[in-house]
Design a protein around this nucleic acid. Structure first.
Lengths: 158, 158
DNA sequence: CCACGTTCGACAACCACGTTTACTATCTGG
DNA sequence: CCAGATAGTAAACGTGGTTGTCGAACGTGG
């Protein structure tokens, strides 16, 4: 670990949290690639999740993800091009363009859920189930203490 | 938390890890901005860390961070423009361009370490010191079990 | 001692993801 | 019925990444 400063305890915690997150995401996408979804990027999982089974609109998606509606729209464009999402007109409001998952999108999301469960099981095997649960509880506690908000995504830069 | 699927336990863990990482980084940069370093981005901390007090070169920096030498070079350009790094010729090898921290760079890195320590203390106040230590231990255990490697940075996209 | 292969840095083209600003089309309430 | 709010799109830009190419400088073998 070339970049961590062993002398300052505070440096380790963010590094470890990032590393933990990363390994789950990397594991997910390695497995997804093997299961027929090589084009799915880390970000896309969040987006599919946020679109949900009922569908949504670009503006609402942006709010859910914490990014501008323009950014959300561009990401939807890419996912449409990849075949994970599709757009449709809203019969009740000609301004809105509904965004829905395709069958491929649903397949990717379902597989993501299964793989995440599997990866969590693997952690539970290594650490013991109660330790994994304790990590989750602790992080939720910190979240509840308003040390951070849990609505999450929407950084990845700038 | 609009984006998490409460029905699938596996989804929560990566989200919580990311949220934990994010809050530390956000807290760091909020504080750094207040202490005279508003231009420092999350990535920059890793880069300064990787440059180290002895300095390095763009190619070596790229290796440490897990990115191409070109990407490392561009990031160095930005940090030079911001006054955190400086370049110098290597008297022993005219091909190489040494990258070193300026006084400002050292100041930013030092303050980062202090702020990270403070944030960790705040977690310890909320959770109890032994719980924070337990999280770190567990994540290190998972790392050691080769469920992930700890050399970390070098994703943030693509 | 010199030619050849390797390495370093730079440059260019490109992509993903985000921003702000600006514009059009549509809906809605007084 | 029109003023104002809202949905989507477009353009310009910033940041962080990628490949590919290239010239200059290094080091080594013949």
């Amino acid at each position: 670990m070339a970049t961590a400063d062993p002398g300052r305890p505070g440096f380790a915690l963010p590094l470890l949290l990032l590393a933990g997150f990363r390994t789950l995401i990397d594991g997910l996408h390695a497995e997804l690639a093997a299961q027929g979804h090589p084009e799915l990027r880390p970000l896309h999982g969040f987006v599919l999740q946020a679109v949900g089974v009922e569908g949504t609109t670009a503006t609402e998606l942006g709010q859910r993800l914490g990014v501008s509606k323009q950014a959300a729209g561009k990401t939807v464009d890419r996912l449409v091009a990849l075949g994970y999402l599709e757009r449709a007109d809203d019969p009740r409001d000609a301004r809105r363009r509904l965004v829905r998952m395709t069958a491929r999108g649903r397949d990717g999301l379902t597989r993501s859920a299964v793989v995440f469960d599997t990866l969590r099981d693997r952690w539970a095997t290594t650490l013991g189930p109660e330790r994994v649960a304790a990590i989750e509880d602790d992080l939720r506690t910190v979240a509840a203490a308003d040390l951070f908000r849990l609505d999450v995504p929407g950084w990845f830069g700038t």
